[in-house]
Amino acid sequence: TYTFKVDNKDQAKKAAKWAKKLGLSFQIEKHGDTFKITVQ
């Protein structure tokens, strides 16, 4: 499981695209202005 934080929606979208490309499941949680992405 890999967790990282991004500062904006664009970065969150890029991370989601990357995870989908690799066939991984992911969750994006919004914490105020940051997004926490968990990829597994």
Rank of each mutant, 00 (worst) to 15 (best):
residue 20 K to Y: 08
residue 7 D to C: 11
residue 11 Q to I: 07
residue 17 K to T: 08
residue 18 W to A: 04
residue 20 K to A: 10
residue 20 K to P: 01
residue 15 A to S: 04
residue 8 N to T: 14
residue 21 K to D: 07
residue 35 F to Y: 14
residue 12 A to Q: 02
residue 5 K to F: 15
residue 35 F to C: 02
residue 22 L to Y: 10
residue 31 H to S: 11
residue 29 E to S: 09
residue 33 D to Q: 09
residue 35 F to A: 02
residue 26 F to S: 03
residue 17 K to E: 12
residue 22 L to P: 00
residue 15 A to K: 04
residue 15 A to E: 02
residue 29 E to A: 07
residue 18 W to F: 05
residue 38 T to I: 10
residue 36 K to F: 15
residue 34 T to I: 14
residue 29 E to K: 07
residue 21 K to L: 08
residue 32 G to M: 05
residue 3 T to S: 11
residue 39 V to E: 00
residue 27 Q to L: 11
residue 24 L to W: 07
residue 27 Q to D: 07
residue 37 I to N: 00
residue 6 V to P: 01
residue 13 K to I: 12
residue 20 K to I: 11
residue 25 S to T: 12
residue 38 T to W: 05
residue 17 K to N: 09
residue 3 T to Q: 06
residue 38 T to S: 06
residue 38 T to D: 02
residue 19 A to E: 01
residue 13 K to C: 11
residue 40 Q to A: 12
residue 15 A to R: 04
residue 2 Y to N: 03
residue 9 K to D: 06
residue 27 Q to A: 10
residue 18 W to N: 03
residue 30 K to Y: 07
residue 39 V to F: 07
residue 39 V to G: 00
residue 24 L to S: 02
residue 14 K to F: 07
residue 9 K to E: 12
residue 40 Q to M: 13
residue 6 V to G: 02
residue 30 K to V: 09
residue 33 D to M: 07
residue 27 Q to V: 14
residue 32 G to W: 03
residue 9 K to R: 12
residue 1 T to H: 10
residue 21 K to M: 10
residue 10 D to P: 06
residue 15 A to N: 02
residue 22 L to W: 09
residue 38 T to P: 00
residue 21 K to G: 08
residue 36 K to P: 00
residue 12 A to D: 00
residue 3 T to D: 04
residue 23 G to E: 03
residue 3 T to A: 05
residue 23 G to I: 02
residue 4 F to S: 01
residue 14 K to T: 06
residue 7 D to Y: 13
residue 2 Y to G: 02
residue 26 F to Y: 10
residue 38 T to V: 07
residue 5 K to W: 15
residue 5 K to Q: 15
residue 27 Q to H: 13
residue 13 K to L: 12
residue 32 G to C: 04
residue 9 K to L: 15
residue 4 F to Y: 05
residue 27 Q to F: 13
residue 1 T to A: 11
residue 24 L to P: 00
residue 8 N to G: 11
residue 21 K to N: 09
residue 35 F to S: 01
residue 8 N to V: 02
residue 3 T to M: 07
residue 36 K to L: 15
residue 1 T to F: 11
residue 8 N to A: 04
residue 26 F to K: 00
residue 10 D to L: 14
residue 1 T to V: 12
residue 5 K to S: 15
residue 6 V to H: 01
residue 25 S to K: 12
residue 39 V to L: 10
residue 24 L to F: 08
residue 14 K to G: 04
residue 1 T to Q: 10
residue 26 F to N: 01
residue 23 G to W: 02
residue 30 K to E: 07
residue 29 E to M: 07
residue 2 Y to A: 03
residue 11 Q to M: 10
residue 6 V to F: 10
residue 27 Q to E: 09
residue 24 L to M: 08
residue 5 K to M: 15
residue 13 K to V: 10
residue 24 L to Y: 11
residue 26 F to W: 06
residue 26 F to A: 06
residue 23 G to M: 04
residue 17 K to M: 12
residue 35 F to H: 02
residue 3 T to C: 14
residue 19 A to Y: 10
residue 24 L to G: 01
residue 16 A to R: 12
residue 7 D to I: 09
residue 9 K to M: 14
residue 18 W to P: 00
residue 17 K to S: 11
residue 8 N to K: 05
residue 5 K to A: 13
residue 16 A to C: 14
residue 15 A to Y: 15
residue 38 T to Q: 05
residue 10 D to F: 14
residue 6 V to S: 02
residue 25 S to V: 12
